[in-house]
Computed example of a mutant assay.
Amino acid sequence: MSIEPSAAVPVLLLSVRDEYTGRRWSPPGHHWPAQPSAVGGLDLVAGGTWLAVEPGGTGPDAPAAEPVAACLLNGFGTPASETARLSRGELPLLAARGGRIDTLDLDRYDPFHLVVVRPDGARVLSWGGGNGGRLAELDLPTGLSVVLNDGPEGLAENRTASERIRLLMAARAAHFRARFEAEPRPRPLPGAATADEAWGTWLPIVTGDGLPLDAPEALIQRREFGDGRIWGSSSISLLAFGPEGVRYDFAPAPMAPGDAAWRQVEL
């Protein structure tokens, strides 16, 4: 996440979806008849999404005048009861249309971090689970911020107990923060013809920076954790919020060198 209020495009969001590779999904689209203006990728297992965008507007289907995006990360903490559990995939859709997460029965959701993005900034809502738990809220500061499964900058109250996972997240965050800071911040205006034109020197970094998928610091990753299932990156989303509206570029992951898989999502 990059927030620069004085920039031509003040708010930029990079979201990499990591999931078990066998979990089926569909690319971003208008998948929810009950919320027709929402755009996001569809989780074909639970029916929700990991990233929802409401483009804003004044039409009858627009829930708000300004655009909003909401991005979900799984958290660590106390899981919900199996008999009462609800899918976290409904939370980005609710937040993108302006719904209040704090009014939900959060005990029915596994731990999560929800990044809610608007043209003037972003806020992270974090839930660690457990009866009597609380929903933490944090406005992200100006500059670059990294939100991990351990929360903003890896400092959530509830964090992983696995040293291996903690070290992998820390290596990933340190490498890519330095890489993005070393390059000029892009101006991804909605009218740019291609993702290359929009995101400039950030795009090769976003697509993996040339690192092997099993490197400790890999952004686009593929890992075996010893249980017979494979964990890896399945898609990349780039969003830009500016005076001209929202630009949304999407690609499946991983991509081969020179792969022209990027497409601008129609909002």
Score class of each variant (00 low, 15 high):
157 E>L: 13
157 E>G: 15
209 D>S: 13
220 I>T: 04
238 L>A: 10
209 D>Q: 02
207 T>A: 14
218 A>T: 03
222 R>K: 13
170 A>G: 06
241 F>E: 05
211 L>F: 02
189 L>Y: 06
210 G>K: 02
240 A>R: 05
211 L>V: 00
151 G>H: 07
153 E>M: 10
183 E>M: 13
154 G>N: 05
217 E>W: 03
138 L>S: 12
195 A>W: 01
192 A>E: 13
184 P>F: 10
193 A>K: 12
197 E>N: 04
191 G>N: 07
216 P>A: 08
201 T>W: 00
249 D>E: 09
188 P>E: 08
215 A>H: 14
175 H>G: 02
150 D>T: 08
244 E>G: 00
156 A>E: 05
242 G>T: 05
172 R>K: 15
146 V>L: 08
152 P>D: 10
182 A>I: 02
153 E>H: 12
198 A>I: 10
225 F>Q: 11
157 E>Q: 13
191 G>P: 00
234 S>Y: 00
159 R>I: 14
212 P>W: 03
233 S>E: 07
177 R>L: 14
248 Y>A: 02
152 P>V: 11
171 A>D: 14
202 W>M: 05
223 R>T: 11
198 A>M: 10
178 A>E: 15
156 A>M: 07
243 P>Y: 05
245 G>A: 05
164 R>Q: 12
239 L>R: 02
172 R>G: 01
222 R>F: 00
156 A>S: 15
174 A>M: 04
187 R>Q: 12
184 P>C: 10
208 G>R: 04
158 N>A: 15
219 L>P: 02
181 E>N: 05
175 H>D: 06
218 A>R: 01
159 R>W: 02
229 R>K: 14
150 D>F: 01
168 L>N: 03
224 E>W: 02
165 I>Q: 11
190 P>S: 06
151 G>C: 09
194 T>C: 11
238 L>Y: 08
175 H>F: 12
239 L>F: 04
189 L>I: 06
190 P>T: 06
188 P>H: 08
164 R>E: 14
172 R>I: 02
218 A>K: 01
240 A>V: 07
178 A>F: 01
204 P>Q: 10
197 E>K: 03
212 P>R: 07
216 P>L: 06
241 F>H: 05
216 P>M: 06
176 F>P: 04
176 F>D: 03
198 A>W: 09
231 W>Q: 14
240 A>G: 09
226 G>K: 11
191 G>W: 11
143 G>Y: 09
186 P>R: 09
233 S>A: 13
154 G>W: 07
239 L>P: 03
172 R>D: 00
138 L>Q: 15
